[in-house]
Simulated scan of single mutants.
Amino acid sequence: MTCRVILIAPAMTPSLRRARFDDGDSIENPSAVALDLPAAGRAVGSPSVRCRETAVALGLDASAEPDLAGLDAGRWRGRTLEEVGAAEPEALVRWMSDPGAAPHGGESVREFCARVAKWLESAGRTAGRTVAVVEPEVVRAVVLHVLGAPETAFWRVDVPPLAATEVTGGPGRWNLRLGQVGG
């Protein structure tokens, strides 16, 4: 049994443009959202506004998956990296260098990666294709899990708006597929 999961990052939002921790804003230009996606047996997504709106703009009837929620930034939500860096420089450096740290009172990168890996392994028990519109950090966590990369590499994966990433396989035997999605 082979499972295919196509991860789609949300369209551009004011928060993404300003490097602001998600504050629930809408995507900037829904009519410009277009990707040539193959038919999927299942569509899911992060429960955020930007992921829901991106899914709708792509014509997907995606159900929200709580385990695909973005990384909980605690009290930093709605603030830019620049603001946090100015107010709490040591805390920001610790959070970005230690996957087990959560100085913002939210979720650590380690906890987040474990949550996403658990979702992926569960999704891998379903044959067929799943399209998931998810936060960029969810894509990062999936890539690390599939490659067996350390959590310290989390911030080394750039995920631009509307990027499509495909993984194929199943529990414990995933492959990262680069190039044309769904072909």
Rank of each mutant, 00 (worst) to 15 (best):
H104G: 12
H104E: 11
G105C: 11
G106R: 01
G106W: 07
G106H: 03
E107R: 01
E107V: 02
S108W: 01
S108V: 09
S108L: 10
R110D: 04
R110V: 08
R110T: 11
E111Y: 14
E111K: 14
E111R: 15
E111H: 14
E111I: 14
F112E: 02
F112N: 08
F112V: 06
F112Q: 10
C113D: 00
C113W: 01
A114P: 03
R115L: 07
R115C: 03
V116P: 05
V116I: 14
V116G: 06
V116C: 09
A117T: 15
K118R: 15
K118M: 13
W119R: 03
W119K: 11
L120I: 13
L120V: 14
L120C: 13
L120W: 11
E121I: 02
E121G: 00
E121S: 03
S122R: 15
A123L: 05
G124P: 10
G124I: 07
G124N: 08
G124A: 06
R125C: 02
R125V: 10
T126S: 14
T126Q: 15
A127D: 12
A127R: 11
A127P: 11
G128W: 05
G128Q: 06
R129H: 00
T130M: 00
T130Q: 00
V131C: 08
V131T: 09
V133Q: 01
V133D: 05
V133L: 02
V133I: 00
V134R: 01
V134Y: 00
E135Y: 02
E135H: 12
E135R: 09
E135K: 08
E135M: 06
P136H: 09
P136I: 04
P136V: 01
E137N: 14
E137A: 15
E137T: 15
E137Y: 12
E137I: 12
E137K: 12
V138Y: 10
V139E: 05
V139W: 00
R140L: 01
R140C: 01
V142P: 04
V142F: 06
V143L: 13
V143N: 13
H145A: 07
H145F: 07
G148D: 11
G148R: 11
G148N: 07
A149V: 10
P150G: 13
P150D: 06
P150I: 06
P150N: 10
E151S: 14
E151Q: 13
T152S: 14
T152G: 15
A153I: 05
A153M: 14
A153E: 13
F154P: 04
W155Q: 13
W155L: 04
R156D: 15
V157P: 08
V157H: 09
D158K: 13
D158P: 05
D158S: 15
V159Y: 03
V159W: 04
P160V: 07
P160S: 04
P160D: 04
P161V: 01
P161I: 03
L162N: 03
L162M: 07
L162W: 00
A163Q: 13
A163W: 07
A164S: 09
E166N: 06
E166K: 09
E166C: 09
V167F: 08
V167Q: 12
V167P: 12
V167C: 12
T168S: 05
T168I: 06
G169V: 08
G170L: 06
G170R: 04
G170M: 08
P171R: 12
P171C: 13
